[in-house]
Amino acid sequence: MKNIWAIFKKEIKTYFTSPIAYVVITVFLVLIGFFFYSLIWWFNSQSLQMAQNPYSYQQLNINQMVYSPLFQNMSIILLLMIPLLTMRLFSEEKKSNTDELLYTCPISINQIILGKYFASLFVLLAMLFLTGILSIFTFAYGNPELVPILNGYLGLFLQGAAFIAVGIFFSSLTENQIVAAVLTFGTLLLFWILSWASYSAGGIWKGVLNYLSFIQHFDDMTRGILDTTDLVYYLSFIFLGLFLTHSVIQSRRWR
């Protein structure tokens, strides 16, 4: 535990002494701010239009009309940003030979991986937490439901955590950060659009592709549904990513 903490602290320091974390967080917040603004603006104009009709006015729902699409947008932006957060985690150690220090210290590979993983999770949490500022306005001037929002954030967090696990894996494969980022991005995008192929697929494949794709699981979570299948999906994704990372590092040393 102490070792994980030491690696965690070191990674956090690296994130925040170099511009990476600031740039990623800032760009993320600017984009989310813009999406939020346009969604609110649209919601506003809808409300004005429907004010004449009491029935449809009742149907207006800020959770569905603002938060659901906002979470979708956030998860796409996370897909773009997370490869940039994870690309240097192992590739830079290898490039600057600092892996030789880590692997000759009395500290296990798992501890190194977890320390790095938690550090990225921390940055992800910071990103998500800061978007919470937006909700101050919706709660001040409207009456959204809290539970579906929290559920959406949980979905974003799990999805981001899965993205990070994929990113760490690709970072352990190469000493080139760009290669790691591109591979991560490509893989995540592929898993994202996997469900598209399910339209044409038949039989069991339809279900398999749908299950493997991020979209299905994330949709559930943004709509306020907390299903154990989705939890299992994300957790197994994370576990697989970290397990493969461990295998890569272990096998490199035996080669």
Partner: peptide, 29 residues
Amino acid sequence: IIGYLPENVPLYPEMTVHSYLSFVSEIKQ
């Protein structure tokens, strides 16, 4: 019980000398 100086010194350029040594002292238990 072993101290190792690799051929390419394993340094983190973004750290200060002190914080580097403090990190190493942590992972060396």
